[in-house]
């Protein structure tokens, strides 16, 4: 009986070991339509995604690269003028109206991105460590911390606009009632970017906490138990087990954080609209502010290309750090 089981009928029809020439001749003998279908099948499977990516990403991106080399003339009836890299040069000319803003805004965006990462990564890890323990009302705490991530951006920013408001704002009203000095959160040119960053950290920390929580729960208990037997505890356990095993999560959070920082627009509309003096303007918001003037489209496209290149850098970095890291871990 046993041998019969080892050789199910399937193998009789098509033995596993076959002459390659035979396979080829068999394939050739298939009708051409079947062969075409077989060849096209993988492409058909990826087609829906590929078509969408082409229409909404690749084609517009290629268009932006081409359009960034043109300048728009006065009348809508005239054709755009080829200017080579002129638009890019203007962006980096501090005397030029667009260059003066662009260089400032690139600085703002880098500050915003780095500061957001510096604070929201440790904060979200802290929340995750705290809320990975058993405590009463755990669900409520977790939900409370995660809640800001669920709010629509513009709604969340409007809440903060009220909190930050100089005259009628909640924070200043509390400060005043405690006898403290009020703070001009959005009106002080040296403070506006920090205020916007605070909102961003508040909004994102809960979201990243979810990734850290998942990462923490993937660390096997036995590792801690074994370490405890060896006499490790507290900081030692954290620095030699928890942190290294959260490396992949941290890298992911870091990269996503950077990408988000470059995509910030909505908050700024509610929080001072980039002013005073463009000290609170970020890159995508500058594009948003510049686009209504038709004659700026060359600059808008050039800024978009730069933005896409920056994001591409992070994405590629993500691929090499995160995806390759995974291979290391699996190995």
């Amino acid at each position: 009986m046993k041998p019969a089981l080892r050789h199910p009928p399937l193998f009789k029809k098509e033995p596993p070991m076959q002459d390659t020439a035979l396979t080829a001749s068999k394939a050739v003998s298939l009708p051409w339509s079947r062969r075409l279908l077989r060849m096209a099948f993988p492409y058909l499977l990826i087609a829906p995604t590929l078509i969408l990516v082409f229409i909404f990403t690749l084609y517009p991106a290629a268009n932006a690269v081409i359009d960034s080399l043109y300048s728009i003339p006065r009348s809508a009836r005239e054709a755009p003028v080829f200017v080579g890299l002129g638009n890019y040069a203007d962006l980096f000319t501090p005397d030029h109206f667009i260059g003066a803003t662009f260089t400032l805004v690139i600085g703002n965006t880098l500050f915003f991105a780095v500061t957001s990462v510096l604070f929201s990564v440790p904060l979200s890890l802290g929340f995750a460590l705290l809320l990975n323990q058993r405590m009463p009302l755990l669900g409520v705490w977790r939900f409370g911390i995660f809640y800001p991530a669920l709010l629509p951006l513009i709604g969340a920013a409007s809440i903060w606009a009220f909190l930050f408001s100089d005259t009628v704002g909640l924070i200043n009203t509390v400060l005043r009632s405690l006898g403290g000095t009020t703070v001009n959160w959005l009106g002080d040119p040296n403070l506006v970017l920090i205020s916007v960053t605070i909102v961003n950290i508040w909004k994102q920390a809960g979201y990243y906490m979810i990734f850290y929580l998942a990462g923490l729960q993937n660390i096997p208990r036995e590792l801690y138990e074994a370490a405890a037997l060896d006499g490790a505890h507290g900081w030692g356990m954290f620095s030699s087990i928890t942190l290294p095993l959260l490396r992949r999560t941290s890298l992911f959070v870091l990269v996503v954080n950077f990408i988000f920082a470059f995509q910030t627009v909505e908050q700024l509309q509610a929080l001072g609209q980039g002013n005073p003096g463009d000290r609170g303007t970020l890159l995508l918001y500058l594009i948003f502010k510049t686009i209504p003037e038709r004659r700026n489209w060359g600059y808008v496209n050039a800024m978009t290309v730069i933005l896409v290149l920056l994001l591409l850098t992070f994405t590629i970095a993500n691929f090499f750090l995160f995806e390759r890291g995974r291979e290391d871990a699996d190995a």
Partner: peptide, 12 residues
């Protein structure tokens, strides 16, 4: 707008 807000806020 940018110039005025820079002046009036004291940034400039």
């Amino acid at each position: 707008n940018t110039t005025l807000s820079a002046i009036i806020s004291g940034a400039e």
